[in-house]
Design a protein around this nucleic acid. Structure first.
Length: 431
RNA sequence: GGAGGUGUCGCCUAGCCCGGUUUAUGGCGCCCGCCUGCUAAGCGGGUUGAGGGUUGUGCCCUCUCGCGGGUUCAAAUCCCGCCACCUCCGCCA
């Protein structure tokens, strides 16, 4: 949720922000109207209610005929109060709906425009030149089959399209990546978490996933419960309705969890292999910090993502995602995209977003901070998230990047201790 | 799933039977000040959060006792539903 005060005082800023994302500014007018209506309704109700309470006090003291008189007066008032209260709560609901429809304004630094208007911030490593090495690279599906690591056929048989089994070396690889990622995050000071992945509407809405992203969310039939598409959801909602001690910030959590996505609207895209799937496991970093520190924290999260990709010896680039391609909650987003040899292009492997106070306002998360003068101050705080490792895409990048002419795959050195010291994944026969 | 119990301002706690100076009591913690020849002890004051009004910047008002309804002129208090936690039983990995 954007700051209601900002909307009221600087509506043109929000209009400009809508335009930068390629969205209509009409929601701004709707929200302003709703705000005015809400405030009028509040004043109306509170006025009547105050009168009612005054009379109530008199009644308590009054006796005899005087009391009868007062009771008659206030009885009529009671009905008016009830009506005014209903009007107020309706107006507040309208106002909330209008506000919730407005996304976080993009950062000044974010490029304007849509999906293709990103800016490349940096490139790291060099894509392998298979032509120079004299062999045709196999894609991850083929490598997965040869290594006995990925079984997409049986995934489809049992669960449908966009499902897979990780088998043998593939399963070992996931556990190794997860443990390595957790080790990295733990030594950076993150608290390790394994969160629930079925959540109530509050958590989903509070993190901004029931807006335009709602089509991508699995809902449990007959229940007000959702499967999360990322552990960002339970990690953000973890501190909902809490006031955190400012001294404890930043709070950094790292979670391992499965993620579920309908992938609605991506029919025909990435149908081969495990680039785009309905379920995958992920290790996610999450920070709560002050609004002042949020940008610096965002850079730190990006730094940890880069450290991770460097250790996997992947070629990748970092992009500044354009305003129109940001999620509802994000003010700014960096994606790390790894080179996928058989596709001849960079594909998103990790992503980090600065959500500022957008989620904390929805989830009622604030910080209590010491002030110069005296009494501590309660203020909104910021949340940020960043992928450390999304398993399938990382496996794709590793297999394709480090494959050898005979179909084996060299294990990056940093990962070997997590794979029983293995240096190479060898083809198996009879998958 | 069944039975019983509990849910009060950061934490603990009084109030609930019997509705009305309750502006929700007290303690801890925290903040400010006083006192004090050291970071102790003591004393005084402040301290839930959200929203609206006013711009007199300090004050006024409303909401907030797990959540939602209801009864009533009036609800922390009475009634109904829901949720969470605890104890016991059942079932289960």
């Amino acid at each position: 949720m954007i700051d209601p005060r900002l909307l009221r005082e600087e509506p043109d800023l929000i209009r400009a922000a809508q335009e930068k994302r390629g969205l209509s500014g009409s929601v701004v007018d709707r929200a302003l109207e709703a705000d005015a209506a809400r405030r009028a309704a509040i004043a109306d109700f509170e006025h009547l209610r105050a009168e009612q309470k005054q009379l109530g006090k008199l009644i308590a003291k009054a006796t005899g005929e005087e009391k009868v008189d007062l009771l008659a007066r206030t009885k009529r008032l009671a009905a008016d109060v009830k009506t005014a209260e209903a009007t107020q709560s309706e107006a507040e609901q309208d106002w909330r709906d209008a506000l919730y429809a407005i996304p976080n304004p993009a950062a000044d630094e974010s490029p304007a425009g849509g999906e293709d208007d990103y800016v490349v911030l940096s490139e790291h490593g060099t894509p392998r030149d298979f032509e120079a090495e004299g062999f045709e690279p196999r894609d991850h599906v083929e490598l997965g089959r040869i290594l006995g690591a990925i079984d997409v056929e049986r995934g489809a048989k049992v669960s449908g399209s966009r499902f897979y089994y990780l088998t043998g070396a593939g399963a070992d690889l996931e556990l190794a990546l997860v443990n390595m990622a957790m080790d990295q995050a733990r030594s950076a000071g993150f608290i390790t978490m394994i969160p629930p992945t079925l959540v109530k509407p509050r958590a989903m809405e509070g993190t901004g996933f029931l807006g335009q992203a709602a089509d991508d969310v699995y809902r449990i039939e007959g229940q007000d419960t959702y499967l999360v598409g990322t552990s960002e959801v339970p990690l953000a909602a973890y501190h909902s309705d809490e006031i955190l001690d400012g001294d404890t910030l930043p709070r950094r959590y790292v979670a391992f969890s499965p993620c579920y996505r309908k992938e609605a609207g991506s029919h025909g895209k990435d149908t081969r292999g495990i680039i785009r799937v309905h379920w995958f496991d992920k290790v996610e970093m999450f920070s709560y910090t002050t609004l002042e520190e949020a940008s610096a924290e965002h850079e730190r999260l990006l730094g940890w993502e880069r450290e991770w990709l460097d250790k996997l010896e992947l070629a990748y680039r970092v992009i500044d995602v354009a305003a129109g391609d940001l999620g509802l909650s994000a003010k700014r987003k960096f994606d790390c995209e790894a080179w996928v040899p058989t596709q001849g292009r960079y594909r998103e492997l990790t992503s980090t977003s600065n959500c500022t106070d957008f989620q904390t306002r929805r989830l009622d998360i604030r910080g209590r901070f010491a002030t110069e003068g005296g009494q501590p101050e309660v203020k909104p705080i910021a949340t940020l998230n960043g992928t450390l490792v999304a398993i399938p895409r990382t496996i794709v990048a590793i297999l394709e990047t480090h494959q050898q002419a005979d179909g084996s795959v060299r294990i990056p050195e940093a990962l070997r201790p997590y794979l029983q010291g293995r240096e190479v994944l060898e083809p198996v026969s009879g998958a």
